[in-house]
Amino acid sequence: MDFVSEAIVLQARKHGETSAIMENFTRERGRHNGLVRGGAGRRMRPLLQPGNIVEVEWRGRLEDHLGYFTVEIVDALAGLFMEDRLSLAALNAIAALLREMLPEKQPLPDLYDVTKIVLERLDDQAVWPALYVRWESLLLQSLGYGLDLSRCAGTGVTDNLTHVSPRSGRAVSTDAAQPYLDKLFRLPPFLRGEPIASPQDIADGLRLTGHFLETRVQWERNRTLPDARRVMVARLQATGLAAD
């Protein structure tokens, strides 16, 4: 058994004296682990940093074996953000969510492609916070818990959708929302295609997707959201890119 795929490094853990077990998100085979000989050494360690785009070749006698990776760098994104605490926090949040939430060996090429786009734009603070929220929405969809923002859950109308039900994940129109405003999430317009996202919109979007990631995905694992995501949200708030 073997395959070759582009991949996003999620984590590398030292194994023995010189090797490392690398966990990555491959475009062809989803989340996949493998042993990298020499992965703990000075030459290989920089390649195995979370967020790097690599090409991997996996070899193993059986598909359920750990197997071995050989690794070649495609884009060393991790090094670009080491001095930018905010972008690094976003990179760490993405890697942590993928590690915790993706099923093993399930191909999710659309999610892979969008993840790569978000990582490549983490140097642009005017763009990536909204991209990140959209990415979390796509993560929910990819895991089978997509939000339905196409029409009002109560009336069926497709315009003036301003809120989301915390139970169903379905949109609610302005009129239908009025009696329940204290119980509903605000739907930020950029999740419905508007081009501009304010700091309040980013905060509302993170609150919305975070609720469903925690109650739909993490609840089944008896976990809360990763600490790395909370750090990212706090840094977005501290820099004024997301409202408190």
Results as ranks from 00 to 15, higher is better:
Gly30Tyr: 00
Val74Met: 11
Leu80Ser: 10
Arg43His: 14
Arg43Ile: 08
Glu120Asp: 05
Glu83Pro: 00
Arg85Gln: 10
Thr70Pro: 00
Asn92Thr: 11
Gly30Trp: 00
Val114His: 10
Leu102Glu: 02
Asp110Arg: 14
Ala90Glu: 07
Phe69His: 04
Pro107Glu: 06
Asp123Val: 09
Glu57His: 15
Asp64Asn: 15
Met44Phe: 09
Gly67Phe: 06
Leu66Phe: 09
Ala90Tyr: 05
Glu55Cys: 08
Lys14Val: 10
Val56Ala: 04
Asp123Leu: 07
Val118Glu: 05
Leu66Pro: 08
Glu72Leu: 04
His15Ser: 14
Lys116Pro: 00
Lys116Met: 11
Glu72Lys: 12
Leu66Tyr: 01
Val74Arg: 15
Leu119Asn: 12
Tyr68Gly: 01
Gly30Pro: 00
Ala76Thr: 00
Ile73Asn: 09
Arg13Gln: 03
Lys105Glu: 15
Arg42His: 03
Ala78His: 15
Leu91Cys: 02
Arg45Glu: 13
Phe69Trp: 08
Ile53Ser: 09
Val36Asn: 03
Leu98Met: 14
Ala95Glu: 05
Gln106Lys: 13
Ala89Leu: 03
Arg42Tyr: 08
Leu80Asn: 07
Pro103Glu: 09
Arg27Thr: 00
Val71Pro: 01
Gly38Thr: 10
Arg121Leu: 11
Ala89Trp: 09
Arg45Thr: 13
Asp84Leu: 01
Leu91Val: 02
Met101Gly: 03
Val54Arg: 06
Leu102Gln: 02
Gly34Gln: 04
Gln125Ile: 12
Glu72Ala: 13
Ala20Met: 08
Glu23Arg: 15
Arg121Ser: 13
Asn24Val: 14
Arg99Ser: 09
Tyr68Pro: 01
Arg61Pro: 04
Ala93Cys: 04
Leu77Ser: 02
Gln125Asn: 11
Lys14Glu: 12
Ala78Val: 07
Glu17Cys: 04
Asp64Glu: 15
Gly51Thr: 08
Asp113Thr: 10
Leu66Ala: 02
Phe81Thr: 04
Ile94Tyr: 02
Met82Asp: 08
Arg59Leu: 11
Leu119Thr: 10
Ala20Gln: 14
Ala40Ile: 03
Ile94Trp: 01
Pro103Ser: 06
Ile94Arg: 07
Gln125Met: 11
Asn52Thr: 09
Thr18Gln: 12
Ile53Pro: 01
Val118Asn: 10
Thr115Ser: 11
Pro103Ala: 04
Gly79Trp: 06
Ala76Leu: 14
Arg31Leu: 14
Phe81Asp: 03
Val114Ser: 07
Asp75Phe: 08
Ile117Gly: 06
Phe81Trp: 15
Phe81Gln: 08
Val54Gly: 04
Asp110Glu: 15
Val56Glu: 00
Met101Tyr: 14
Leu35Cys: 06
Asp124Trp: 04
Leu102Ile: 02
Gln49Phe: 02
Asn52Ala: 05
Thr18Pro: 00
Glu23Tyr: 11
Leu111Pro: 05
His32Ala: 09
Val36Cys: 07
Arg42Lys: 13
Arg27Asp: 03
Met101Arg: 12
Glu120Ile: 01
Met101His: 03
Ala12Trp: 07
Ser87Gly: 15
Ala95Lys: 01
Ile73Cys: 09
Leu119Gly: 06
Val74Asn: 08
Pro50Tyr: 10
Thr18Lys: 13
